[in-house]
Design a protein around this nucleic acid. Structure first.
Lengths: 344, 344
DNA sequence: TTGAAAGCGTTACCAC
DNA sequence: GTGGTAACGCTTTCAA
């Protein structure tokens, strides 16, 4: 590769100073049309592109956003990335991804990895802080957007987990189900996620609201790790144990629901004949597999996060935080049906 | 945010020159142990981190790898990212992601998006070039690793698509299937992918190798877009048309297979009783749903790509290209079974 | 409207 | 083993 052309080369070819070239190329005012044209021509001829590092060093802005998530190989994360990239790229921002795995204290790791890179902003997916850490986020000195959680510092895009679980549970209750199980997760990671707890509470409150006795009706919440394999494992345990089966199951994710349903059928248990299952997410395969679920538009969440970031970057308001609460919706498919009357 | 500390601050506090600080902090030789310790202490006290932009500008290395893919919200891409990030991060490399959508000529777009960022290397997933473009890749002047394709310029991690399809087809033939359909895809994108064609040819050659007449046996290849929805749509068309159903179907992806199987069952068609289906990939849900498939370890592909990149970066050999051909394996599950004898 | 020059925070070369 | 000091390629005052 011939060593890349610099702004000096362009300046020389165009017959102007580097200052003028810089202004002309960035579309700044105070450049005569004729000059701008000559500069652009020269730049094109030399196949010139600004060096982002140099530009960033001089200007202080990197045009790069850091995306931090526990991992990237789940359905949820992949949707968010896509949504985010889709709005950042056209605005001239690059996306840098950091997986922090499952760590109890993500903040130090984040600092270590993000600080030196000097990103213009940070988006966090499902990284959970307590309020004490909010100060730490603030110390990064760049706009923060949280996805899947909410804090006093930073914007957020966060669904109402409690309500989602309520929606799912009410659906089961209306179908006549009385032995209901909530299947949460994430105990196999070190990361302290409040999500499962919120959803469990939603299940409980729906049951109470229906005038039914919580203790009498809700089965123990088994841990399903939010994953396909988790759902499978839990169903296996349910089959093996002595107690009577629940007739309605609320799962914390569609992937758990799918794993669970597959294992149920493998054991000759009909869904929804014998057991009704509600998932959470509206995974791409939920439709195909007929999973009743609580729909959230994850791709759109990513876009929203991106837009919040761009807006903040544009007008420099690091103060007024927006907290977006995306819609949730019950989508009834074929994994839920009326409870058998003799089962109540 | 108090304005960040620079190397000068550290130098001052430690009582050494910036040159020495720089060396000490990077673990370079020619620094006395005592000095190194004092410098490190000072750095820690000031909470100092090098500014990557400045460092990169001065050294010429960015410690950033660009990942280019048509999109990021598919199962395949998300696995690759994870594998890649998992090996790059510990080595101190950041990962910058670029979605180039589906474009007929990805090279200009790549140049536009990647050049100015000055990445140290580029990994390309399922971006397809002809040999004429190889020169263009070379012009980037950084190591290139291709995933899902192979070119004269750049390393590659690329399965033998032809053989994979052969494996799948042979399995069906051995089960006695004679009316076989290959379900390819990607015509709904502009991107010219050779993958589907290679797999189709694999199917044909397996049939020929079995001494059967290609023309007589292979049904038309319908386009399934490699997606879940594509699989569903194709099965719907199969049901609606007059001709007799194939008894064995080779799908270009598990997602297509899943969509297709679900739609088949929705139409009262038993899988594998009436139709046997083989997928491709070994998607996380393939096991759960009992899809017979051609397994490829996509996560590992990402890791391999990362390692190739790091090795190249380490010893600067931009010449000797490695072409890794990962293993493929037939995994028999419950979506395939013997052809009904009266059906042959 | 244009240009000169001072940074931006490092690294790397060359003295000492 | 340590310290000066030019780069690195750009942006941004400040003058003209």
């Amino acid at each position: 590769m011939a060593s890349r052309n610099t702004i000096d080369d362009v300046a020389q070819l165009a017959g102007f100073s580097v200052a003028t070239v810089s202004r002309a190329l960035r579309g700044l005012p105070n450049v005569s049309p004729a000059t701008r044209e000559r500069v652009e021509l020269a730049a094109a001829e030399l196949n010139y592109t600004v060096d982002a590092r140099a530009s960033s060093l001089a200007s202080g802005r990197t045009h790069t956003i850091g995306l931090v998530a526990p991992w990237f190989d789940s359905w949820y994360e992949s949707k968010v990335i896509s949504g985010l990239e889709g709005v950042l790229a056209p605005a001239g921002y690059d996306l840098l991804v950091y997986a922090i795995k499952t760590s109890v204290r993500p903040l130090p790791i984040m600092r270590e990895r993000v600080r030196s890179r000097t990103v213009d902003g940070i988006v966090l997916i499902d990284v959970f802080f307590d309020e004490a850490d909010a100060e730490g986020l603030k110390a990064f000195g760049v706009p923060i957007v949280l996805l899947g959680s909410r804090l006093s510092y930073g914007h957020s895009v966060n669904i109402d987990n409690h309500r989602g679980a309520q929606l799912a549970t009410s659906h089961l209750l209306e179908l006549g189900h009385r032995r209901i199980l909530y299947l949460g997760g994430a105990q196999d990671t070190e990361m302290v996620s409040p999500v499962s707890g919120l959803r469990e509470e939603g299940v409980r409150s729906a049951i109470r609201d229906a005038g039914l006795d919580d203790a009498d009706i809700l089965e123990v919440s088994l841990d399903g790790g939010f994953s396909i394999a988790g759902g499978t494992a839990v169903m296996r345990r349910l089959v093996e144990r002595a107690e009577p089966m629940p007739t309605g199951i609320v799962c914390g994710s569609d992937e758990m629901a799918m794993g669970l349903m597959a294992e149920a059928r493998r054991n000759g248990i009909d869904v929804p004949g014998e057991i009704s299952v509600v998932g959470f997410d509206d995974h791409d395969l939920a439709d195909v597999l007929g999973v009743t679920t609580i729909r959230q538009h994850v791709f759109a969440h990513g876009e929203t996060a991106g837009r919040l970031m761009l807006d903040t970057l544009a007008d420099g308001h690091h103060r007024n935080f927006h907290h977006v609460e995306p819609e949730l919706e019950l989508i009834v498919r074929n994994s839920t049906g009326p409870a058998k009357s003799d089962d109540t």
